[in-house]
Each structure stands twice: as C-alpha cells, then as structure tokens.
C-alpha cells in the first residue's frame, strides 16, 4: 500500500462520518480521505457506491500538475467494493487525462472481473510496443501499460494473447514482467513463469517485491523455492508464498493436500 493515509487509525472515522465527508464538497481533503476510507474498510453500501461514482467525475479537487486526486481514490475504492454495476462508469473514466486516474481505474476493472472491460483495455495496446513510449515531460509512459496488461491477465482475456505477447520485450522492466505475468495466466506456459522467477534476482528491491507478489498471484508453483530464497523481507516472502499456496488450492479442488502445497508450507514454516 502506498497510500499515506494507511497509517491513520481506523477509529478516526465512523461510517456515518465517512459518508457525510464523501458527500460534502466544502473540504476536499476530508472528501479525499473518506473515499480512501470506504474502500479500505469495505463500506459496501448503495449510498457509498453512488457517492464514489459521483466523485469519479469530480472537477473540484485538482493537483498542481492538473491531476484529479479524488477521482483516483474513488476509482480504487470502487475496485475494492466489488459492485459490478459501476463498470460502465469506470470505463468512462478511462478517458480522463490523468494517467494515475486511468491506472487506478484499470486496476479496479481487473479486480471487478467483468470481461466486458476487455475490448476497451485492449484498445490501449493499439500501435503495439512501438507506440508505448514515455509521455513527453512526464516520468511515466503514455499509458499505465503494466496495469493494463495485468488486468487483461486477471480478466482471462485469452483473445488478447497476440497483442500482449510483444510487450514481454518492452524496454521498461515493469512492463516486461506484467506481460509475462499476464501471459502465464492466459497460456499457462512455464517459460513466462520463469521470467517472473528471474525477476526475483533483479538488483532493484522494488522489482523483486513486485515479482514476489506476481508469482504468488498467478500461482506459479515452480517458483516457490525461489521466493523463499529471494533477498527481501521474510514478511513479504510469507505473503507471496501464502498467495501462491492459496492460488494453488483454488486450482486443485481436491480435498487432499498436494505435495506442492505441502512443500510451499514447509518453506513458509522456515520463514516464520
């Protein structure tokens, strides 16, 4: 979690206060925090959903660089609340000119799991890797390609494999790994899982952390050993192995524990 608000104690707001703060427009800071709060504490109520959808079109809360901070938080919260009816509103927000709003929307669309989002997400890949260049004057690419690729993988967009695959050769490592993650989810080919395992040896700790979570999320069991041996905090490796184990458990409906499941638990035991 990168939200600075993560450390604010939960008891600092009641649900009623959060809803009231979300609906008012006098104090942008309170509204911004309330939008985060309802997502964090899974306040899944119709009035909250409606208020967040309104906030997705907010024009009042603007950052110095022209961004829409409230829209970003509203989009993230909608992803966490799991209400499928907001998908059309989210799809509309993909036209927002704030890169970070689009990124948050893409992530939430991936979380909500509605395949109806696939064609619009795929349209971001038009022009292929050649068009996926840096945004002039900004510290980021033209689109949040890593998040788009991840969402396509989570949504099971098998029809998109041809367009996703070239991104495994993109010059930005984060994008390469996102493509590998999606390709593994969509094709089950172990060569893509191995790309993620190689990322565990990246010199950059952020990349190693991302790869840990990716391997867990896609359930690439041959990566279990490599996760345990990665140079990163034990707490993170435990979370990654838990993700790996739970993905594996979902994919093997049998009641009996597989030898892979037992092996991953033995690795976890040693990290406690």
């Amino acid at each position: 979690m990168s939200d600075a608000a993560e450390n604010v104690p939960a008891e600092s707001l009641t649900l009623e206060e959060a809803i009231a703060n979300l609906q008012q427009t006098e104090d942008p800071g309170l509204r911004y925090y309330a939008a985060w709060w309802v997502g964090r504490f899974r306040a899944n109520q119709p009035v909250v959903i409606d208020s967040l959808v309104v906030a997705l079109a907010d024009e009042l809360n603007r950052s110095p660089d022209g961004g829409y901070p409230l829209r970003r938080n509203a989009a993230r919260a909608l992803g966490k609340l799991g209400e499928p009816s907001v998908v059309p509103a989210l799809l509309e927000s993909l036209d927002c000119d704030d890169y970070y709003v689009r990124g948050a929307v893409v992530e939430s669309l991936g979380e909500l799991g509605d395949k109806v989002a696939i064609p619009r997400l795929l349209s971001f890949l038009d022009g292929g890797v050649e068009a996926a260049t840096m945004m002039p004057g900004k510290p980021h690419l033209r689109e949040p390609y890593d998040l788009i690729l991840e969402a396509l993988g989570s949504l099971g967009a098998t029809e998109a494999v041809g367009q996703i695959k070239p991104f495994a050769e993109h010059s930005v490592e984060k994008v390469q790994y996102a493509a590998a993650r999606a390709m593994y989810q969509l094709t089950g080919e172990s060569s893509y899982g191995d790309v993620l395992v190689q990322a565990l040896a990246a010199p950059d700790l952020q990349l190693r952390r991302a790869a840990l979570m990716d391997i867990g999320a896609v359930g690439y069991m041959p990566g279990a050993e490599a996760i345990a041996g990665t140079l990163a905090e034990n707490s993170l490796k435990l979370i990654a192995l838990k993700g790996l184990l739970e993905t594996h458990l979902r994919q093997s409906p049998d009641d009996a524990l597989t030898s892979e499941a037992i092996h991953s638990m033995d690795l976890m035991d040693d990290l406690l």
Binding site: L245, R250, A261, M268
Partner: peptide
Amino acid sequence: EAPALQARAQLALQ
C-alpha cells in the same frame, strides 16, 4: 478465514 491457514492446520492434523 484464510485458506492457507486451513491447509496448514489440515497438514498439522495429518
């Protein structure tokens, strides 16, 4: 609530 915990407890029981 965590499937990983259920699995680990099952393993312990085995």
